[in-house]
Write a protein that binds this DNA or RNA. Structure first.
Lengths: 238, 238
DNA sequence: AGCGCACTACGTACGCTGTACGTAACTAGG
DNA sequence: CCTAGTTACGTACAGCGTACGTAGTGCGCT
């Protein structure tokens, strides 16, 4: 019966099952896993209600018993990969710990290249997100600043990781399901960039491109940016 | 005739018009402006080829003469709002200038709330993006570090602006076209968050939430984060 | 014990999407 | 002037999210 609710709803506040009626055939985790599997293998645009239902082996509309709107499926997916974060024992060195957390986030995003695109549209207080936030706060215990500053630091680190990794990944995700390769796409884009810089309209940009010799080490760039951010919050450096 | 190309293509490398045949009825700017108007007024999901074509007063398929794929329309939109960046004369104070640039980016995103969501999927070497990049490099002229470090600083600032502003905006964009208000959605989410924190599963998170009294000043948080990032690149502070 | 209700399951249908393809009109270059 | 390359756009198709209705299931209450 029902009809969808006319009131906002957080999927995590919904109980997973309610007792009356037939036992649900799937858990939320099952559904999230299926969606993640599809997104990993065929790209985010392949994640449709029909496709996920087929992967689970049930009718399309049955999915709506578990997930009121597609957006909630996305939230499930984000939470699902959040579980991949290792909650380790803080070492007492908050910089090293946060660096480790950041590298792990980056690794997760590399494994699941659709994550950055979903992150900018999702609210982000899923269970695993909260768990990770709590873990970061534990890592920052030795840092002697107000709690508010700590959460700001965490947000900043996550932001940097997301932006940098999203850029690395963008081409991969875009060329998926295109009839040409990532290398071809990159070559065409670089050729265009070169032609623009060559017009002389962007002298400083041109100089910057001339300066760099050889390919960029994305990993090194990423780590440098992160170190800078941590520097900015390190009392011992001020 | 045609049939779409089986080779990657940068829309900016396409000439706007080619000489033979009837004069194109629209410029790329016209199309971008129409799409931006729709996205601003009705949200990003209302930007469809049909809708944009209607806004321009032409048939749906005519649009494909100008924009080979919808993704390219997105690229046009990003470039279009990039034109809103004021290219001012650098003052000689790189920190102040970059702060101004960042505030402007934030303002643009607030005017066009769909920008952050598009940014994580778009490559980003459009004419106006290049123009802005060049402008930032001009602002950083007084800063005595290698050009590579400067571009890293710019990337970091843009990343921070995007992440922070995206979070502020997420709810607004989500509740558009929903039968409930932004305040209602926020209330429901906050209630859920409170209930989770109250379980005691996240003690440090709970403490952080207790510490803050009164509503958060998002603008102040944003500015603080930015200052930290600039600190991290300021030679006078190391 | 058994009734009723809350729940699961899912087929059908609607309005929307991106876009492939074919045809007609137009105009600059040879 | 002719023709080749372009613009314009109607039609069509596969796929999307999801509203709605119906059938079946089993817990909780009387």
């Amino acid at each position: 019966m029902a009809g969808r609710a006319a009131v906002p709803e957080v999927i995590w506040a919904r109980p997973e099952r309610t007792g009356r009626g037939p036992k649900p055939a799937f858990t939320r985790a099952d559904i999230a896993a299926a969606a993640v599997r599809i997104a990993d293998a065929e790209g985010l645009e392949a994640v449709s209600m029909r496709h996920v239902a087929a992967e689970l082996g049930c009718g399309t509309m049955s999915l709506y018993n578990y997930v009121p709107r597609k957006e909630d499926l996305y939230e499930l997916m984000i939470d699902s990969v959040g579980a991949e974060h290792e909650i380790f024992e803080p070492t007492g060195d908050w910089r090293a710990d946060m660096l480790r957390n950041a590298e792990e986030t980056r690794a997760i995003m590399r494994r699941h290249t659709w994550v950055p695109r979903l992150m900018s549209g999702v609210y982000g207080f899923s269970p695993n997100t909260l768990r990770y936030l709590e873990h970061c706060l534990a890592c920052l215990e030795p840092l002697d600043v107000p709690a508010g500053t700590k959460t700001e630091l965490i947000a900043l680190v996550n932001g940097v990781v997301t932006t940098y990794t999203a850029n690395d990944i963008a081409t991969v995700e875009r060329t998926r399901s295109m009839p040409w390769s990532e290398e071809e796409e990159n070559a065409v884009r670089m050729a265009y960039l070169g032609s623009q810089v060559a017009t002389g309209a962007y002298p400083r940009l041109a100089a910057a491109f001339m300066e760099q010799s050889g390919p960029v080490d994305l990993e090194a760039v990423f780590r440098r940016a992160l170190e800078r951010v941590l520097d900015a919050y390190d009392p011992e450096l001020r």
